[in-house]
Amino acid sequence: MKMFDYVSPRSLSDACRLLSGGGEHPRILAGGTDVLVELRKSAVPSPLMIMDISRLAELKGIEESGDSIIIRPLTTHAELAQSEIIKRHAPLLYTAVSTIGSPQIRNRGTIGGNIMNAAACADTVPPLMVLGAQLKLLSAEGERTLPMSDFFVKPYQTLAGPNELLTQIQFPKLQAGARSAFIKLGRRNALAIARLSVAVVLVKKSDGTIGEARIVPGAAFPQWQQVPEAEKLLIGKKSSKEIFAEAGEKVSETMISLTGRRWSTEYKEPVIAVLVRRALEACT
């Protein structure tokens, strides 16, 4: 284990003050399921200081606010998986948090940590992105809100400054008539890093045609994004296996145009198309 100083702020304002100092900024520790693994890796430079925010009560909890759901970042995956609010208003997020890691990981790992760590395989990100989540960041200088669709630069890199703390994740409840799904493909069920995943939301109009479609694949693109090329194919159409398969093919095509052909493409090319089709079928 590396050597570092340890500090545990008593409040959010304390935490912001500690992050605002000059010199190297402290490494933030929440549930620790990623950070502790990293602290053992010899290739990663040692942080000077670990700032443990895991017991800041201000950063825990799930609430309904009008048509929105607010999740505070230190809410654990297990807490989300036990929440009736999440189950009812964001069932695809419920699926993601119920299957992430293992029971032990879900009891410690937090949704904020999953977002801020920004691994390409982060299970909560595709569901939150299709839900249109906004992130609130706080620093000693003030607060700002960013749409999650703008937040990620590349794997493990976000637009959050080293002095900023994530304080809130907010997204609108799924509207009436909206159906959603999240599918993750790993090498086994428990403790599997997603090889590929996909989150989708479909909204049907009263005449049965698709009025709105949002698709965000995980571990497929250089950074998470919707796939407008595939979404456009669905708008105004009736649900069918053929149109869903076509949308899947389009996602696969987009993936290759963004990543080029790599060692894993032979596998991912057909598989992402099928996952997208299955996710869309699960919405009917």
Binding site: G32, T33, L36, R55, Q104, R108
Partner: peptide
């Protein structure tokens, strides 16, 4: 690294990997 579960203990009544908890926490 939190994969095997051999170090599982209860933390406030919940099963956790003790290898992934920093002792000051």
């Amino acid at each position: 690294v939190g994969e095997c579960g051999a170090c599982t203990v209860l933390f406030n009544g919940k099963a956790v990997n003790s290898c992934l908890v920093l002792a000051p926490q």
